[in-house]
Amino acid sequence: MKPDTQVSPIVRCRGVTKVYRVGAVDVPALSGIDLDLAPGDFATLAGPSGSGKTTLLNMIGGLDRPTSGTVEIDGQEVTALSSGARAALRLHRIGFVFQAYNLVPVLSALENVALTLQLLGVGPAERAERARVALDEVGIGALADRRPAYLSGGQQQRVAVARALVTRPVIVLADEPTANLDSTNADGLIGLMSDLNRASGTTFLISSHDARVIDRSRRHIEVVDGKVVSDDRR
């Protein structure tokens, strides 16, 4: 639980709270989170439904602003940024893998991966090349021209991982990436992420309550009622 002071952290959360207003009622989702993620961390985030994991992930991803507290990513204070600046931050520093609706259905696997590069302003030849390399790295280079509808759930998630990594982000955030996969595919995907983490040193934060995922993580954080209740490094 104590903040890492050796190296400057990739993510630094301090006293992060978030209160949603549902109708006339205030619902607290996060009630004071302090959390640091170091470069190269391969961490899982678990907790019961409604514990606030997704909200926390959104905060770290710069998708949402905390009600109070601060979130720093790679030394940059996110809370103060405009939505445009946060979009730029996501594009340059963060990779996302979602549970579903990961890919643009009208684009092929290769085009999906190249899309974020295009948003970064990378030229056509370079982005095709980098996207192809990224797809090879996740082991589905042969399926590059298929559209998502012609890919299995596991293959789709691999494309999402390739897309998340192709921009060389400092951190990849994955929200229940294995929730819709069978165990073979889930194992494969988590193994892949673990390998990529080791190979590239990119920080991974994966929200999941899948035991197989948690088993393979090297740091496990548990959130209950909007608070971090345990943080084990192994």
């Binding site: 998708l63 979009a87 594009l91 340059h92 963060i94 609706y101 990961n102 948003l119």
Partner: peptide, 16 residues
């Protein structure tokens, strides 16, 4: 809407 949300999360601007 969800697809647009995903594109926004990836860093696409609402203008785009």
């Amino acid at each position: 809407t969800r697809e647009f949300g995903m594109l926004l999360a990836l860093g696409m601007r609402p203008m785009q």
